[in-house]
Design a protein around this nucleic acid. Structure first.
Lengths: 201, 201, 201, 201
DNA sequence: TATGAATGAGCGTTCATTCAT
DNA sequence: AATGAATGAACGCTCATTCAT
């Protein structure tokens, strides 16, 4: 599914990723991107229609790479919990290993940098995760709340944590990650009866 | 504590908030801000030293208003759980009622738009919440993990949810908010013994 | 002849003089002039029609003060040489004691900062010196060359020397000034016969 | 030594020279320079880093061209008087033929328009003239006074004369120039004994 | 008189994009 | 395919000047 990139496209993507992470969209000029990619600015326009086209494509490219990774080892025949754990760790590890990409996606999600169209496509890439959650609700394994809540409390916090890790405020090692997973899973799984009261004596 | 604003400062703040939310920092030119505020572009510089100064001050202004709200009814003599609930709902309700401001803060947190100095000041505003969490850990009420984890799983998800609410993907009413609070509190509170194993047979 | 100045006019003149000397005409904004003069910028317009009017008037004011000084002790009944010496030393001493004013006049002479009209008026102020030179030529005491040459070689060099003195490249004390006068007078006075050949054996 | 200029650099230099001579540094906007040079304003920045860089380079360019001309036919083996005459006429003729350039240099010398660094470089270009004067003093041919005095009375007056020539107040033809040279040389050469007293009976 | 907030044209500079080479 | 000079609109910001107070 992921398109094979030519050398220059790769170089442009890498340069764009770095620059936008450090300085934002508008402060990353095509001239700077070209220079960092080691090509002439005009050359970018051979591969991309415009700056907007470039960031849209970069967004989808990264989203696809992350998704390819996210569903590695995942099988719809797995139990919901097993599937969730597989995907969660895949995403977490991808973000830990590809911090730049993770931060870029965070910026794209919150900023009006990416076309609505491309953002919609990006969402669809994570559809299998949504499907898994829906199955989990049908099987009464997950909480009966809108999927957005499950995502907000189980997946989305990873973005914040990666950014804190990047800023050296925390060290997101294996042990801490297991802590996180525990919290994430507890957030989404259906509570057992004896947990319904939080103020037991 | 919150500085009283003159009419023009207010108008500039409002225009800046709207424009940056819709188009980002660099696409929100001083000319557009001025036009939307109904003043001449030069006038902005009577109240703010530069565009950077303007967004820094807007950031701190909103952060302070949110903080003032966040700690309403909060008292250090309250129990950790009570205090947490008070603050959490305060924050959640503020964000629900001030979606624009909430979204602006999210953008500021993730984008290199705000000075390091101002960001640091912004962090300090939420110090009482950090102090509460530290007390909660001393009292063995909260999980013994870095505060960032608690924030990531209990507070930060609100940003994502507000954005989904804004996009009409969910309707964040009172009922749903209570659901969210339950999840948030479960994320941070220390587990009781019978919950330690998530894979009971 | 010199108009009596009000306190605020004086303050504005002083501020303008300093600022233009240090930064030039356009880099000296009315706001900066006002601030340095200790008044509001609008107040300047009570005393001067415009920035152009301000510098024109400052130019003429200084020129008049210099001229008043230049002809002190000068009397048309004096011999040409005596008169020339009086005026030359008056000018030289005025410039030594009022370096800022001297430099300002130099800038005005060479730069398109002052209206042609005001410049013409400024020239007329030195008319008595021109008259003295013309008498000197009639009396065969001075060289029979255009007055501009006499001015160029006898008076104008003082501007350059003041600027070098200001830059600490030379120290224009009494002794050096006497050297200068000797050279200046030799430049304008008619050569005696035994000087006509410069390559005497 | 003088760098070969591209067509657009030449056009920008020419436009800048004319505009600054007529209106001064700050009144000569980059837009006006570009328009006069027949190019887009952005194009100037391909060749020059900034407006400051542009005037610095123009200053040094003209200074170098003048110096190249000034030392044509000059040889350190010449006598001091011969060398002085060669250089003086070279400078005078250059200024007569290149009035715009001469006036620009005068403005640069007196105005805070040029960087200190560039001004220093500009000074060094005339070093051979300074060396000649020092030799003249060692050989007791020139007056034992600071070089600045010699420059002030022998070279600097040319600037004033050129400006008067430009304003049609004098006509600086060959004959008048010879007059000037005589005065200039007399200003710097050591007086013979019978001249020491200026007030012979 | 005196103020200083307000204006909006104009500044130096940067930028995405084009196109002759 | 690749270049980078060239464009001119748009940027953040400053300015001389005005005018309600």
């Amino acid at each position: 599914m992921t398109k094979i990139l030519k050398d220059k496209e790769k170089a442009v993507f890498k340069a764009t990723l770095d620059l936008i992470n450090n300085s934002g969209f508008h402060a990353s000029s095509m001239a700077k991107i070209a220079q960092r990619a080691g090509i002439a600015s005009g050359t970018i326009y051979i591969y991309f229609e415009s700056k907007q086209d470039l960031v849209n494509k970069l967004y989808l490219h990264i989203k696809e790479k992350m998704a390819t990774n996210a569903f590695k080892g995942f099988d719809e025949k797995q139990s919901v919990e097993e599937g969730f754990r597989t995907i969660w760790y895949n995403i977490a590890n991808y973000k830990r290993k590809h911090i730049k990409e993770a931060m870029f996606l965070s910026i794209c999600d919150i900023t009006p940098m990416i076309d609505k169209n491309s953002k919609q496509k990006g969402l669809e890439i994570l559809q299998p995760l949504a499907n898994l959650c829906l199955r989990g609700q049908r099987e009464k394994v997950l909480k009966q709340v809108p999927l957005q809540l499950l995502y907000a409390f189980a997946i989305n916090p990873l973005s914040y944590l990666i950014s804190e890790h990047q800023d050296k405020n925390i060290k997101l090692n294996k042990e801490l990650l297991d802590h996180c997973y525990r919290i994430a899973w507890d957030s989404v799984r259906k509570e057992t009866n004896n947990e319904t009261t939080t103020e037991t004596i």
